[in-house]
């Protein structure tokens, strides 16, 4: 298991990190942090830059929405969930683990 430690993000923002060679997107939705793989399961484009709101991220390319806590997609463009990572708060820092 590998971990990254990162400072908390601004509300409803995201940032690309790397964890063991995988591009990971850390998101702050409504004050809660989530980490997902930075690749849409619809057409494989990066999710970075997608809008984060209300526990979801919208893919910037075609707008597929993923539930940040489960990775499950909404709509019919893809049925494949996006990978999620463990996130915990330690002494005010965000720890992401695979």
């Amino acid at each position: 298991m590998s971990e990254i430690i990162h400072e908390p993000l601004a509300l409803n923002s995201s940032e690309v990190l790397e964890l063991e060679g995988e591009s990971v997107l850390l998101c702050n939705s409504g004050g809660s942090h989530f980490a997902i793989r930075n690749q849409c399961t619809h057409q494989n484009s990066p999710l970075a830059g997608g809008r984060v709101r209300n526990g979801f991220i919208s893919c910037p390319l075609h707008g597929v929405r993923f539930d940040l806590s489960t990775g499950e997609p909404r709509g019919t463009l893809t049925r494949v969930p996006v990978k999620t990572y463990g996130v915990r708060d330690e002494d005010g820092m965000i720890v992401i683990s695979n």
Binding site: S58, H62, G63, R65, R74, G75, T76
Partner: peptide, 11 residues
Amino acid sequence: LKSPGDNGFCE
């Protein structure tokens, strides 16, 4: 362009 009943955000 969008899925049935879908909602979300796009530019």
